[in-house]
Amino acid sequence: MRSEAVRAAARRLLEEGKVVRFLGHAPGFDPTSPFPQLITRAEEAERLVLDHFCAPNLAKYLLDYETQEGVTAVVLKGCDALGLARLLADHRVARDRVWVVGLPCPGMLDRDKAAALLPGVQEARAEGDEFVLTGAGGERRVAAGQVLLDRCLVCAVPTPDDADELLGEPVPGRPVPREEDAAVAALEAMTSAERKAYWTEQFSRCIRCMACRNVCPACNCRSCCFDSEEPRWLSRVTDGPAQEMFHFVRALHVAGRCVDCHECERVCPMDIPLMKLNHKLLQDVEELFELERAFVPREVEPLGIYRPDDPEEFA
C-alpha cells in the first residue's frame, strides 16, 4: 500500500541525519501479521513494509529509546498518534525526540476476518469501498465492512494531527455511531448476578500473558503494580478473584486515560472483550465529568482534577 513511501521516508530521514533510528513495520512469519522493525541505516529501509495489515501501534516502542540519544522516527496512524499523545501527556516521551511519519489510514484489516473470507490470504489491496484479498487460495473481492477491524469501522481519527510529515493526503473520519455503546448498554441491562457470571466466564479464559498491558500506550509505567512483591496487589495464582482484580485494576488504571485504540483487545489471545471495560469507563468519564472525546489525552487527566459541583450522589 504505502511500502515504497515509507521506505523513501526512512532513507531520507536517516541519510539526512534527521533521525538516528526509524521504527516501522516489517513482514512477520506471516505477511498478515507484520512485526515492528527498527532500522538505523538507510540501506535497511528495504525491510520496511506498510500495508493493510499494519495494525500494530508502534508508539509504545518509543519507550525503549527513552534514555537513548537521538531522534526516533516512527510510523503512526491516527489511532497510534493518540497513543503518542498519551505518552507525551504522561511525560514519558519528549516530543522533540520523536519524528512522526503519519499515515492517513484507510483502515486496517482484521486478519482473522480476512483469513475466514479467504483462507491462506497473503495480501490485500483497496479498491474503492472494497478490498481485494489475494493468496494461495486465489483472489477474492470483499466489502470493506466485512474485513476491516471493528475499530476502523468507527474510526474518528484516521489521520494523525500532530505528524511531522504525512504519507499521503489526510483521510476523513467515519462519522458512524459508536456500536460499543450498545455493547456496554447490553451488559448494563443485565442483573448484577448475570454480569458477575458473564465477567467470571470471560476472565476465566485469561492466561495473564500481559499482552493487553504491554501493548497499551496508557499502561506506560516504568514498573507495574502487577509486578510488585510488596504489597502483592495481584496474586500469582489465576483464580477468579485474582483475574477479577487484574482486569479491574488494569481498566481502572487507564480510566480517563484510555485512547480507545483497541490494541488490548486486538492482541488478546483469548478474545476477552477488554474494550467493553474500557468503553464503560470512557462513557462514564464523559457523562459524569461532562467531557467530550475523553479518549483524547489532555493536559490533566479527568481523575487528576475535580469540580466543586461534580455530581453528588454520596451525601
Binding site: 448475570e194 454480569r195 458477575k196 482486569h247 479491574f248 481502572l252
Partner: peptide, 17 residues
C-alpha cells in the same frame, strides 16, 4: 468523589451490586 463516582459504577458493571 470523582474517583468513586466512577468506581461505584465500575464495580456494579463487574457484578458487584
Amino acid at each position: 468523589r470523582r474517583r468513586f463516582l466512577l468506581v461505584k459504577r465500575f464495580l456494579d458493571y463487574l457484578g458487584i451490586d
